[in-house]
């Protein structure tokens, strides 16, 4: 099987969220970056499992500048065979999707994986756009994926329901919790990753369509009103009469 996994670079989940340049840019100062958890824990690991049981190869692809090399190496250390980096700093998901589509077109990939969404921009867009650009089926929000000959059996987790899907390859799948268990790279993987190929491709310019104008921090909470554990009934009164939410 030929598998392609799209990976995004995001700030570590504990990183401080702050902005610079008049709130137009995320402040990367002192921030640790990681592979987007949905991409790494679920999409990449499931792709590696499929390769291990069925044979084939796993390629990871990232749209980003040279400092993304660090997260690409991590994906290689986890077991991806090779990597592609499209050299640009994307301003929206459309740019990411159109770049990846150009690479993937005619690449013969059986499954193209993305994560459900990134934990920084929370769009959940790239997979669906890729599918449309490549004219492939798209199964979003996959929580389980098994290969059955030339087809996939997928369980999608949606609002309140689990939906079972049968789809033919090639196709695009967005992965979420349930699909696999996160792995930690071992020493051998880390050593091997250093000599694995990373192909750098120049970007070929599709303009962004929905870039960020300015970031806004949420209003601070006004402080927490404490209610005595001796009298929890008061909470119900406050929620009813003061907050008016019940």
């Amino acid at each position: 099987m030929k598998l392609l996994v799209c990976i995004s670079k995001v700030p570590d989940t504990t990183a401080k969220v702050a902005f610079t340049d008049g709130n137009t840019r995320y402040n990367e100062n002192g921030v640790q970056f990681i592979i987007n958890p949905y991409d790494e824990w679920y999409a990449l690991v499931r792709a590696l499992e499929l390769k291990e049981t069925l044979g084939g190869s796993v390629t990871v692809i990232n749209v980003g500048k040279a400092d993304n090399e660090q997260i690409i190496r991590k994906a290689l250390a986890l077991g991806a065979d090779d990597a592609v980096r499209i050299d640009m700093d994307p301003a929206d998901a459309w740019q990411v999707a159109s770049q990846i589509a150009q690479y993937a077109k005619g690449g013969g990939f059986d499954i193209i994986f993305t994560g459900k969404e990134t934990i920084d921009y929370n769009g959940g867009i790239v997979g669906g756009m890729l599918a449309e650009l490549l004219d492939l089926p798209y199964v979003a929000l996959a929580a389980k994926l098994d290969v059955d000959g030339t087809q996939l059996n997928i369980a999608q987790e949606m609002e309140g329901v689990k939906q079972l899907i049968k789809v033919s390859m090639p196709c695009v799948v967005s992965a979420q919790k349930g699909m696999a268990e996160a792995r930690i790279p071992n020493m051998r993987g880390i050593l091997a990753s250093k000599s694995k190929p990373v192909q750098v491709i120049p970007a070929s310019g599709d303009a962004a369509k929905s870039p960020v104008k300015v970031f806004v921090m949420p209003a601070e909470k006004q402080g927490c009103k404490m209610i005595s554990a001796e009298n929890p009934e008061e909470l119900v009164q406050l929620l009813h009469n003061e907050a008016k939410v019940i």
Partner: peptide
């Protein structure tokens, strides 16, 4: 306006 960083902040986007 949309939430970003899983709700830790918002982003204002220029409506085309």
């Amino acid at each position: 306006r949309k939430a970003v960083f899983s709700g830790k902040a918002f982003a204002d986007l220029q409506m085309s």
